[in-house]
Design a protein around this nucleic acid. Structure first.
Lengths: 109, 109
DNA sequence: AAGTTAATTAATCAAGTGGTTAAATAATGC
DNA sequence: GCATTATTTAACCACTTGATTAATTAACTT
């Protein structure tokens, strides 16, 4: 619905390195909470909370399989973030400016 | 230096709609605090704090000009965010998968 | 039924966020 | 020097975040 709050939640969720690491792991396939928690030093409840934040931002979806709750990556909010960021690309992408100048030069002749 | 905390700060700063609006304004050229505050209903100190967060994430740089402190957009963290996000593009970009399949088909023949 | 494994909830805590109003600082212009 | 304009700092408040340990729920295994 609201594009703004969707982006708010996505950006906020991505602001923590543990959550970005969890997403990186999920990019290679679904994983359970324990699997996701394994690389971290923090407690399981802490990881559980991070997962909840990611879920709240719709960055992951959770299923049920016996006592496991496998998580899968959800692309849509990442696409929204990419789309938002792309609108600023011309600011840092020097090649962009160079290219448009070259094209203008060519048209001018 | 530390790539992770740089991204942390950038994502956290981008998580607030007012701060994204400020960046959008600065994308069109430098502006003073009062100019940046004008579209918002919140108080000037509140805007000042948002600006400080953006500065902390290195998303803007501040100069001095008499009693004004003009802000300018800083592209580097946005580029870092874009780069981070791009690594997930293949997950949502269906055209990517379609394209690679087409290429595989062509090679197979 | 009892034990094990997976995950969440509860209670707690310190620190951070986002906002306010009121006061202070900085620089300009008369 | 004094008033004005631009901006920040201070003090405060409610709420959220990120973490902990201990307890609980859920589902499988024997």
């Amino acid at each position: 619905m609201n594009e703004v709050t969707q982006l708010d939640a996505a950006f906020a969720a991505l602001a923590h390195p543990a959550r970005r690491a969890i997403l990186a792991r999920l990019a290679q396939g679904e994983a359970t909470v324990n699997e996701l928690a394994e690389p971290f030093e923090m407690s399981l409840p802490a990881v559980s909370k991070h997962i909840r934040v990611l879920e709240g931002a719709n960055l992951i979806t959770r299923a049920r399989n016996a006592q496991f709750r496998p998580c899968t990556l959800n692309a849509a909010p990442l696409a929204a973030v990419a789309e938002w960021t792309e609108q600023y690309r011309h600011i840092w992408d020097v090649r962009f400016d160079t290219m448009t100048e070259i094209l203008k030069d060519l048209e001018g002749k």
